[in-house]
Design a protein around this nucleic acid. Structure first.
Lengths: 142, 142
DNA sequence: CGTTGCCTTGACGCCCACGTCAAGCCGTAC
DNA sequence: GTACGGCTTGACGTGGGCGTCAAGGCAACG
């Protein structure tokens, strides 16, 4: 199997595969013409990398999984180093989700406050002597 | 107030202020020597930008808030365009948090499955004829 | 007079996972 | 012959928000 076919099988690009090779993550054999050659095991390695990438793992974080597979283990996560990466990632995800929820709460509170302020201004404008300050409270000046 | 002092007041750097100016976000007056000059209103604009940046807003997303303040409104979020950015950000945050929670669940499930597999292998190794396959199930080969 | 410290513009570096283009080789189909 | 598709290496581009020099101007202090 050559690089184009492997890329197609894994739903990625030849550029990506060459990049992985440059990072030492997915080295390739060469045929008589210098073309890269891959087999089914490479496809399995590649799929492992892609799955983790889709989860948001850095490329370096996929390395233990790849090495685990290459060492002959049935799954990329059959090795302690891979499990350690899983656990670290879970911690990172929990931390990130926590931060994002805090931000979401803050932004939501700001929106609510700003909308309340606008409504109070609109109410003020209706009471005293007709709409005058206006700002751009929802309509255009003619 | 010159650029160094404004940066210090806002807890940022001169490089950042020049960058904002290059983006047209925080233009500066110049004194006789060509030095950038700022006042308290610029500090308020800058604080608005920094707050939103801390929330994870893109620089471009802070523009409506800055323009709103410069238009004379009491708060950066006193204008409809700012509220629209808030709402869009809330949607983005909700979507992102949802994705991260899904990923977290997947990674957690993978970790649980992998740990279960390792325990089963360890149990198998204890039953038949003594520990032989071993892998690297927690110990070293001497 | 020199040193220090603030300011100026310009430009390259960084990070990360590639995209994209260039120039050229190889084999096959027409 | 030549057009085409796939492969090779090399190298520059992307995005965002700056960091980090480089080379020089201006003012105040001693």
């Amino acid at each position: 199997m050559r690089i184009g076919e492997l890329a197609a099988q894994a739903g990625t690009t030849t550029r990506t595969l060459r990049y992985y090779e440059s990072r030492g993550l997915l080295p390739a054999r060469r045929d008589a013409h210098g073309y890269r050659t891959y087999d089914e095991r490479d496809l399995k390695l590649l799929r492992q990398i892609r799955t983790l990438q889709d989860f948001g793992f850095d490329l370096e974080e996929t390395r233990p999984f790849v090495e685990c597979l290459r060492a002959g283990h049935p799954e990329g996560d059959s090795c302690p180093a891979s499990l350690a990466v899983y656990r670290r990632k879970l911690d990172e995800l929990d931390a990130l989700i926590g931060e994002l929820r805090a931000v979401r709460a803050q932004v939501g509170a700001q929106l609510a406050r700003a909308e309340r302020a606008r409504n109070e201004l609109a109410a003020d404008a209706l009471v005293p002597g007709g709409p005058e300050p206006r700002c751009e409270l929802g309509g255009q000046e003619r």
